[in-house]
Design a protein around this nucleic acid. Structure first.
Lengths: 240, 240
DNA sequence: CGCTGTGAATTATTTCACAGCA
DNA sequence: TGCTGTGAAATAATTCACAGCG
């Protein structure tokens, strides 16, 4: 048994790293080579102490009295979050949303590459989306074996999501980004992240509904400082 | 004084409510009228105790020894998360992603309605997307005044996101769902939620990168190199 | 008896605040 | 001097475990 020494990086920290990387890239593009935790934290929308704590999990990349070297930090966080390699990704479901995602610059960025697009609809199979010909879902296992993706994007209708995920997991996929408007369960060794548009809207609606109540009843109290929830990621991992 | 009873509902709980509502709707559609915290929790992917705690913030909707009445719970959570009204929503940015979102069933569901679509691109302005004619962004303030939306969906390119949000906030928007691949800042009274696709992928990549390191140190057996067999494991130096 | 609702314990995350180094 | 890195404290979120009611 390997000892329990492996510093466990908090999930909350992990979820913030891409954000740090983004603002660091902006700084770098602007020619900034050094940045203090205060400035970086402000740009990223977190407290300076939290930023320092987050970075400290990876080691000492700052210089006391000076700050952090932007290029160094970009490289370190980049590597930590999987940069430096091109991750092959398979996408299941090429409807409106899938098509938008597949051609969306954000997903095609540097470190990720969609190696296969899959759908059931005969009207879609065979068409070209973002330079790739959409394959029939029957070939899913074959395609996974061929391209060896570890990450899959599921953009199927709700009713097909769970079955699709099961097949993906069986085929060897270990990370799933689920856009289907339904929850999916997967074995513990698989990381599942869900992005649900209507859920996000509901959360906003909740806050709006609260605001109405608050402003109606607030005559003496200052308006509820409804904290703005920056960066919302709902991750649901199957826990045994 | 209204007493100290105004229970502050944890943000974490709020984020889970839409998920509960979804599985409750599924149960209801399946004709289930009662459900125990254990069953509901399993379907929602949380622990039973957590579900009970979450629901307890809203009052006692369960019956000891029996469980929860599905219709009652659907109604309560629905109302809490803004159901029962139709929330007008304005969308800024009608590119591939915006178009997909606008026509996506999830967003058009029951409680939300896109009342205006806005873009800058002359090639897009004037076209019809999901029964709505895309308006020029110049009319943004006018449209907000006309339809009184409180919620806005921002699906512009990164460079336009902050300016767009500023205008929206000035116009009176108090909730923003940001799909632009950049962070935006807003006054404290505005709720901002961000959905960033590439960030989600990076979080998955982080976990994948970790898995490689973990399995390598555990079995001394190198795992299948990812496609371009270059240094996929250069990220193994984060052991402090 | 079975299941909810919840105080208490536990765990996770954030913030404070300051020692220590460049 | 100025800013990082981090113990210690504070806060938030989750889980345990069981009293209490239908």
């Amino acid at each position: 048994m390997t000892g329990p020494d492996e510093q466990q990086i908090p999930e909350a920290t992990i979820a913030r790293l891409p954000g740090y990387l983004r603002v660091l890239n902006d700084f770098q593009a602007a020619g900034v080579t050094r940045v203090s935790s205060t400035d970086l934290a402000e740009a990223a929308g977190v407290q300076p102490a939290l930023l320092r704590r987050d970075l400290s999990y990876f080691g000492s990349y700052g210089t006391r009295g000076v700050g952090y070297e932007v290029p160094l930090l970009v490289r370190e966080i980049g590597l930590t979050t999987g940069g430096g390699t091109v991750w092959p990704v398979i996408m299941i479901g090429v409807g409106n949303l899938g098509r938008a995602l597949a051609t969306h610059g954000g997903l095609l960025q540097q470190d990720f590459k969609i190696v296969a697009l899959v759908d059931v609809d005969p009207a879609v199979v065979g068409s070209t989306v973002g330079r790739r010909v959409v394959q029939h879902v029957d070939r899913l296992e074959e395609l996974v074996a061929q391209y060896q993706p570890r990450i899959a994007i599921v953009a199927t209708p709700a009713h097909a999501a769970q079955a699709t995920c099961d097949r993906l997991v069986d085929a060897g996929i270990t990370s799933i980004l689920n856009f289907a408007p339904t929850g999916v369960v997967a074995p513990a060794h698989v990381t599942v992240r869900a992005v649900d548009l209507s859920q996000e809207l509901r959360i906003l609606a909740f806050h709006e509904a609260r605001r109405v109540v608050a402003s109606e009843s607030a005559t003496a109290q200052p308006v509820q400082p409804v904290q703005s929830a920056q960066s919302a990621q709902s991750a649901q991992e199957y826990v045994p």
